[in-house]
């Protein structure tokens, strides 16, 4: 297993947010974490990379327990994280954004250069010197993914990559994710958009009120409309 998460419990202040969340991701797999707004998707991702202070549970990445490591150490081991609201550095140019994400090459993992990312997202290649703040939402989404790829991760957590994007851009995004999969990356996406998730995912988990309610292949989810209707506001 690439990533094994078990017994994850997270709190913000007095509020208990995640309850014994567990999921796993195999090498080269694309897994979708589905759930409504506020179901706990973002908190799950933030907990995995160590951005939530009050958290218990085990996170094994490539067999190593990373649950006690600070965020930057987790990321340096090849676990990339793309946050939901993109959070690009608006004052920095496209190239400088990539510089921040740059990490040394990792054995057995695809090595990314700005040039290779421009191949993946041709739009970005045309605006290398443009500050991130002057880019459209779709371009920013490409930039934030590219920036994380510069760290040569072997697994990427993508938080709501389709949110607020025009359908045309969402299609491009799906293509890019499938390309990343072909490069051997494992990918976890969090999504509300089931349509988009179906295009790219092998398996899915459904999270609701901080608990995992369903786990199975996309075909199994398809065969279970009652599960879908109960937990996803589609």
């Amino acid at each position: 297993m690439k990533l094994e998460v078990s017994g994850l419990n997270s709190h913000y202040g007095p509020a208990h947010i995640l309850f014994d969340v567990g999921f796993e991701v195999g090498a080269g797999e694309v897994v979708a974490l589905l759930g409504r707004n506020g179901a706990g998707k973002s908190t799950t991702f933030r907990s995995v990379v160590g951005l939530v202070a009050q958290r218990t549970g085990q996170i094994r990445f490539e067999g190593e327990d990373v649950s006690r490591l600070p965020t930057y150490e987790v990321v340096r081991r090849g676990l990339g994280y793309v946050p939901e609201d993109r959070r690009i550095f608006t004052e920095l140019t496209v190239e400088e954004n990539f510089t921040v994400g740059r990490q040394p090459p990792r054995a057995g993992v695809a090595t990314w250069t700005p040039e290779r990312i421009y191949e993946l997202f041709p739009n970005l290649g045309e605006m290398r010197k443009r500050p991130g703040g002057q880019m459209s939402g779709g371009e920013q989404q490409m930039l934030t993914i590219g920036r994380t790829l510069m760290g040569n991760p072997s697994l990427v957590l993508l938080d709501e990559p389709s949110e607020g994007l025009a359908p045309k851009i969402v299609e491009q995004m799906a293509d890019a994710i499938l390309t990343m999969k072909r490069e051997g990356l494992s990918i976890v996406i969090s999504e509300q958009n089931l349509h988009f998730a179906k295009l790219i995912s092998d398996r899915a988990y459904i999270i609701e009120k901080g608990r995992i309610r369903f786990s199975g292949t996309m075909a199994e989810l398809e065969a279970n409309p009652e599960v879908r209707d109960a937990y996803l506001a589609v």
């Binding site: 025009a166 359908p167 958009n193 089931l194 349509h195 589609v234």
Partner: peptide, 11 residues
């Protein structure tokens, strides 16, 4: 529909 609602899978 083309720009926003899409194929209607979101409601």
């Amino acid at each position: 529909r083309a720009i926003y609602l899409g194929e209607g899978l979101l409601y």
